[in-house]
Design a protein around this nucleic acid. Structure first.
Length: 754
RNA sequence: GCUGCUGUAGCUCAGCUGGUAGAGCACCUCAUUGGUAAUGAGGAGGUCUCGGGUUCAAGUCCCGACAGCAGCUCCA
């Protein structure tokens, strides 16, 4: 016998091997009808699965359409239904993975003729037919060999590959059959297709097989499903509402920022209103930093290449940077050729691009076309560079003395490395490090905390650019801390607290904390494993000791050290890293940083990189969506607008305006010959916190009629009262309105995978 | 970078199966001097993203570039 503990606390005895379906039936007919799946010891299972033998109590719950977990099961089943429909309409389509998402599902499909959005209506129609037939989902199991044979017979090559790659070690694999459709799948599933109330295909996009960009790209069909049409409609409505908060839309409407193609993609132009908000945010954090022992610094936007070779950024992130600036054209050409060709895997189109470039630069390379491989091509380039240098009166004796291709390359690259060249800075740290190095340090000086709003440039891939959240030029509220190893815990802790303070000051409470750890299987990380071990443990201990919810994620560390990231979602559910605190044992090593300890000998400091906002651009983008453009009073670019009911009261209006300005508020007057309703409508749409209506009554009483953006007409009050009210609201940085709903189409938190 | 979709006035969009462009809002002018989300009338504004091609004729069809959007990959 098995003892089941039900959600209401009651206990029930059933025989081993009983199915949840039977338990539901024994509880009540309506429950049995409503049942979608069951949760047994916190594991979600099919209604038809046999309850496991167990000692002690087994927690047991029937899931119905009221439960969120049941919706995930439904959506996973819908992924199957969609695949089945696609197979009917696109015979020969190959299936990859089809999980449920937080708000829907997808299936990765490789169809012989590509699926287009125009096909959605007939796919949906086919899905509705399948739903109407209400066929059951039936589970069965096979050994690995039988399973491989089965998926091969089904013509599903990706599934064969998946079994061979990842599933071989399991004793048996499960399948689900629904009518003619059979799919390798872990489950669980809804009992039959009739449970589906509403489905909708949403979009189609490319996705790589096993998330590997070197592998085949498949088509990912996104959809969503609900138990009822009403829920689907509500969800679609919510998406529409969320999209109205998009910072790209509001940024344009409220004249906060713009992007001009004349300047370039991914380069933000802050318009006066956006710049005002940014300036206030910068002032806010500057004050906070001074309180916390930071020292301001300023550093240039470019630095010598050598600096970034030393830091490792130039070689490591080569293809994500704006091209280096060399004084000698030959150096630029050699550099480009070297980089492209020595990467070793030059795709034909990239090689063509390289050739085009050299052609445009009138950089003809004899022998290049005839060369058989990259080494020969590189050598041909080197020969040409030597000739070019000779014409400029530059001679490289080492090159001519060299007897092998490798020696010649070395001589030339040696020359290249000596060439004066500059890089738009992709990071502020090397500059701050030079400030640290400008004077000797005693352990008594540490921590040294150098802060700068440092603008950096990174050449992000075109497909990544997005409004203010992913850009090619951005300003970090950056600082670098140089500390003794013993200070690590205290300083990282203080920075976590600073980030938390900043986020809470803005009412940004909907974030998650990610502790980025190295991926032990990867070789991209530098530094000693024992340093990593220690650093990772320190970070985890710190977030734990603060009782923060966090997820430790392997492979999310920076190449030089582990980090803590604060991640928020935008209005369509995409995640963005804002604040970050990163530990670094690498750069102090590379730049040979020192401090003198109390033993009078030199020691290596540890560095902390941190940016509570992340970047001003991304933070602003997220903030626009967070407030739906309605900034709280302390941040609002225009805090109040004076509007006389007619031109006759312009003088009094100006008096009010000037009085408020004298008290430090950002105020404008709307003295156009428009009706008051029109002025209010406009100010309301511009999300101005306070509208100050003045007319005859106000003028004679020395008051203003206050209309609040949130609460509407507050009636008349003396000007001094208004000033006091505004002062308080600003001083407390009061937040009265935020928007949190996000329409999430993209969550990666798959709960069930095939 | 990859896959797909999109690109018409400052903004939001219309423009049927090819026959040299249209609306609303915004803007400008004039009248109106008003009481809490749109006063009325008039006017100006476009190399239909750019470059090729097909055609007697291209905003419309084809090819390419660029840019934007969604997703994937990347993200110091």
């Amino acid at each position: 016998m098995l003892t089941l503990k039900l959600p209401d606390g009651s206990v029930r005895q059933v025989a081993e091997g009983t199915r949840p379906r039977d338990v539901a039936a024994s509880i009540g007919k309506r429950l049995a009808q409503a049942a979608v799946a069951a949760k047994v010891n916190d594991k979600i299972v099919d209604l038809d699965s046999e309850l496991p033998a167990g000692n002690g109590e087994t927690s047991f719950q029937i899931l119905t359409d009221k439960d969120k977990e049941a919706l995930a099961v439904l959506r996973h089943s819908c992924a199957h239904i969609m695949a089945r429909a696609v197979l009917r309409l696109f015979p020969g389509a190959q299936l990859a993975f089809g999980p449920a998402l937080e708000n829907g599902f997808y299936y990765d499909i490789d169809a012989p003729t590509p699926i287009r959005e125009d096909d959605f209506p007939r796919i949906e129609e086919e899905m509705r037919k399948i739903v109407a037939e209400s066929e059951p989902f039936e589970r069965f199991e096979r050994s690995v060999d039988e399973a491989r044979e089965l998926v091969r017979d089904l013509g599903q090559g990706y599934k064969v590959e998946h079994i061979d790659d990842d599933l071989k070690q399991y004793p048996s694999l499960s399948f689900y059959r629904q009518g003619e459709f059979i799919d390798l799948c872990r489950g669980p599933h809804i009992p039959h297709a009739g449970k589906v109330g509403a489905i909708k295909l949403l979009s189609i996009a490319g996705a790589y097989w096993k998330n590997d960009s070197s592998r085949r790209q498949l088509q990912r069909l996104y959809g969503t499903a609900f138990f009822s049409q009403k829920d689907l409609d509500a969800y679609l409505h919510q998406i529409e509402e969320a999209k109205k908060r998009d910072h790209r839309l509001l940024g344009k409407q409220l004249k906060l920022f713009t992007i001009s193609q004349a300047v370039g993609s991914g380069l933000i132009l802050w318009m006066p209103k956006g710049a005002t908000v940014r300036g206030i945010l910068e002032g806010f954090i500057k004050d906070e930093l001074l309180k916390r022992g930071y020292q301001p610094v300023y550093t240039p936007h470019i630095g010598r290449l050598e600096l970034y070779r030393t830091s490792g950024h130039f070689p490591y992130y080569r293809d994500a940077q704006f091209p280096p600036m060399y004084f000698r054209p030959a150096a630029g050409a050699l550099d480009l050729a070297q980089w492209r060709l020595s990467a070793g895997h030059l795709a034909p189109e990239k090689e063509r691009a390289l050739k085009d470039f050299m052609d445009q630069a009138h950089f003809k390379v004899p022998g290049y076309e005839q060369a058989k491989n990259d080494e020969d091509r590189l050598e041909a380039v080197h020969r040409q560079v030597i000739k070019l240098l000779a014409t400029m009166g530059i001679d490289l004796p080492d090159y001519h003395k060299a007897t092998t291709a490798a020696e010649r390359a070395k001589a030339l690259l040696g020359w290249l490395e000596q060439q004066e060249g500059f890089l738009l800075k992709p990071m502020n740290c090397p500059h701050h490090i030079q400030i640290y190095k400008a004077e000797p340090h005693s352990y008594r000086d540490l921590p040294v905390r150098l802060a700068e709003f440092g603008t950096v440039y990174r050449f992000e891939q075109t497909g990544e650019l997005s409004g203010m959240t992913r850009v090619r030029g951005f300003t970090q509220d950056d600082a670098h801390l140089f500390i003794t190893p013993e200070q690590t815990e205290a300083e990282v802790g203080a920075n976590i607290d600073l980030v938390l303070f900043v986020l809470s000051s803005l009412g940004l409470n909907d974030y998650r904390v990610r502790v980025g750890l190295r991926d032990p299987k990867s070789d991209k990380y530098v530094g000693k494993p024992e340093n990593w071990q220690k650093a990772e443990q320190t970070l985890i201990d710190l977030v734990k000791s603060r009782g923060m919810n966090y997820s430790a994620e392997e492979g999310e560390a920076a190449f030089y050290g582990p980090k803590i990231d604060f991640v928020v979602r935008d209005c369509i559910g995409r995640e963005w890293q804002l604040g970050t605190v990163q530990l670094d044992y690498n750069l102090p090593e590379r730049f040979d940083l020192e401090y003198i300890g109390n033993d009078n000998s030199a020691h290596r400091p540890v560095m902390i990189h941190r940016a509570p906002f992340g970047s001003m651009e991304r933070f602003m983008g997220i903030l626009i969506e967070h407030f739906a453009g309605a900034f709280p009073l302390w941040l609002a670019p225009e805090q109040a607008r004076v509007m006389p009911v007619s031109e006759r009261f312009r003088d009094y209006g100006e008096k009010v305006e000037n009085e408020l300005k004298a008290n430090g508020f950002r105020v404008h007057g709307d003295y156009r010959p428009e009706k008051i309703g029109y002025k209010i409508r406009e100010a309301q749409l511009e999300k101005i916190p306070y509208m100050l209506v003045v007319g005859d009554k106000e003028q004679s009483a020395g008051t203003v009629s206050v209309r609040d953006r949130v609460d509407g007409d507050l009636g008349a009050m003396p000007l001094v009262d208004l000033i006091q009210r505004l002062n308080e609201e600003v001083k407390e940085r009061r937040i009265r309105q935020v928007s949190t709903a996000s329409a999430d189409l993209t969550d990666r938190g798959a709960q069930f995978g095939d």
